[in-house]
Computed example of a mutant assay.
Amino acid sequence: MAAVSHGPAALLGVTLTDGSRLLAGKRVAALTGAEEKAVGLGGAAPFPLVERLVAEGATQVPGPGFAEHTVRDGRLVTGQNPASAAAVARAVVRMLAAGWTEIPTAAADGGTLGAYVARPDGAGPFPGVVVAPELFGVNGHVEDVTRRVAELGCVAIAPDFHHRTEPRAALGYDTAGRERGFALLNALTRDGVTEDVAAALTHLSRREGTTPRTGMVGFSVGGHLAVIAAARLGLDATAAFYPGWLTGTEFPIGRPEPTLGLVGDIRGRLLVLVGEDDHVVPAADRERIAAALAAAGPRHELVVPAGIPHGYFCDERDSYRPEAAADAWRRVARLLDGLRM
């Protein structure tokens, strides 16, 4: 849900038809009293706004760095002045232009799989980019990332890789979500995910305003899937964030031989981003990945930010590291920019 107002105060007390508060469970950009003073707005609000928002079940996105969240957040967006209102309006237009669709699979029974699709403004033509999530499925964060890829000038699509076992699975970043995610991961096969990425690319190729150039951005398990697709489907550019389990066979996507053995088939550019303190991709695995890429010879860059944990790009996890995430996104933007050349 997106809401536009002259400020968060206008949303206080608003209830939905079921009697629940509009703000419950939403993220709201609002300044505390101390933050107002820091930006020269001390005394502007005649009541404790943040406290009242929180009392209605909202979570504060704090200042002074909340502007990015107000523009990108798909659940609640507010603007407090004409300049931010214009940015908010553009964000809402982008969100309305994105959404879920059903696309054909390669199955003989004519089956379909769900996919979240976002398109840039303008007529194009644009390259197509697949977004592959962590084991939590295409949840709100992944929808947000898909829209961000579209903002880079690509038609972006996030397929529901869990469609065979739990369609539209969108798990939380808690113990229950992680446990269910690993159960779903065990149901993914290398051939199955290759078929799904191929179906997504075929869908994009049949849309007006797209080019033959293709890429993929994946996170954790999705980074692993991106490496598989780069090797098997001839992608032009691939970004793999902390791709887990490339060196082993503990999950079906890593069989019959470890996926790392496929990197010699990659013909496009490959960007691998993994933190120094990543427990899923430890130092020994990173050394094997670096050696395999050097030996196989694909054009690649391996970026290892110091002191950074697994999952550092996701702003809904405790492992989120804003500076490292921003640097990673700049690198992804440069990589995908090459698809338009």
Rank of each mutant, 00 (worst) to 15 (best):
A325K: 09
A91C: 11
L273V: 15
I103C: 02
P167G: 01
D18C: 05
F182Y: 15
T210C: 07
A325G: 07
A107P: 06
I289N: 05
A10D: 14
S20Q: 09
V221L: 15
H6W: 13
G311W: 08
D144F: 08
A187M: 10
W329R: 02
L96H: 14
V117G: 04
V92Y: 04
S220M: 10
G338V: 04
T194Q: 11
L11V: 02
Q80F: 14
A156I: 01
A176W: 01
A118H: 00
P252V: 03
A294R: 09
A3S: 14
S5E: 10
V197Q: 02
V280T: 12
L204I: 11
I228C: 02
R119Q: 08
R299V: 09
W329A: 00
D265T: 12
D121M: 10
D109V: 02
G248V: 13
A326N: 08
I103T: 04
G172W: 11
L12S: 05
T17V: 14
R164K: 11
R52W: 08
D174E: 11
R180G: 05
H6A: 15
T247W: 00
H162I: 03
T70A: 14
R168K: 10
V263G: 00
D285C: 08
V14M: 03
R340F: 04
P133T: 06
L335C: 03
